[in-house]
């Protein structure tokens, strides 16, 4: 029971707190070029601040989701990518990460709940002994759901389901708001996150890259 209690506790999925990138701009740096493209980034790591479990995972993998807002007042569209953006953190250019680089990191592990299976089996096991009128001892054994095994199984299923759902929600929210490789149409404004390779946020800055014309 102690083992199952520990497993249930450890396997319990932590909720993901959705961050609205629009409201995430508490401290910010603004950069505007003459074409009218205004790009703003927040200097607070709001995703990690609001999601402690995710913060640890991101920090271990040196990733930060920085809230970024782009207002394209020019008459051309452009795509937010390494080719067009330069991201600065701690006064040094940093790498921006595509979703394929961080997707694995976003999920909480749920396979630990599989370890509950032997616990469920152990608690479901039963042995019954009866005596026939002729005085013959009969024994019967097998697996049968009881209160404990049922409760543990249920908690395991709930935990696993909840973890999968939280993972989906996290992934969906981040991917939906990932600005990297997004195209910003003329006259439109986009708000979202850009994932950078860094372990702490210090004076982040972003700008439209100077592309040399040949």
């Amino acid at each position: 029971m102690v083992v199952s209690a520990m497993l249930i506790f450890v396997g319990c999925a932590m909720p993901y707190r959705t961050i609205n990138p629009v409201s995430a701009f508490t401290g910010q740096t603004v950069n505007e070029n003459k074409t009218g493209v205004v790009i703003t980034c927040s200097d607070i790591d709001i995703v990690s601040a609001q999601n402690k479990w995710l913060a640890k995972k991101l920090w271990r993998n040196e990733m930060i989701f920085v809230p970024v807002k782009v207002q394209n007042n020019s008459d051309s569209s452009f795509t937010l990518s390494v080719r067009t953006l330069e991201f600065i953190n701690d006064y040094t250019p940093v790498e921006m990460l595509e979703s394929s680089r961080y997707q694995k990191v976003l999920g909480q592990k749920y396979w630990g709940n599989l370890l509950l299976l032997p616990v469920v089996m152990a608690t479901s096991y039963y042995t019954e002994t009866s005596e026939s009128p002729e005085g013959i001892q009969l024994s019967r054994n097998g697996f049968r759901l009881n209160f404990w095994s049922g409760a543990i199984a249920l908690l395991g299923i709930v935990n696993t389901t909840r973890t999968i759902l939280v993972n989906q929600k996290t992934k969906k929210h981040i991917l939906q708001n990932d600005l990297y490789l997004k195209t910003v149409q003329p006259g439109s404004k986009v708000c979202g996150f850009i994932c950078i390779k860094a372990d702490k946020l210090n004076s982040p800055m972003v700008r439209i890259r100077n592309i040399k014309q040949k």
Binding site: T29, V30, N31, E32, N33, K34, T35, V37, S74, D75, S76, S77, F78, T84, I88, M205, R207, I208, R209, N210, I211, K212, Q213
Partner: peptide, 14 residues
Amino acid sequence: LLTMPLVLFSQNNF
């Protein structure tokens, strides 16, 4: 055409 405006008129805060 897509990148020309950025090339010609880029002015940044760093």
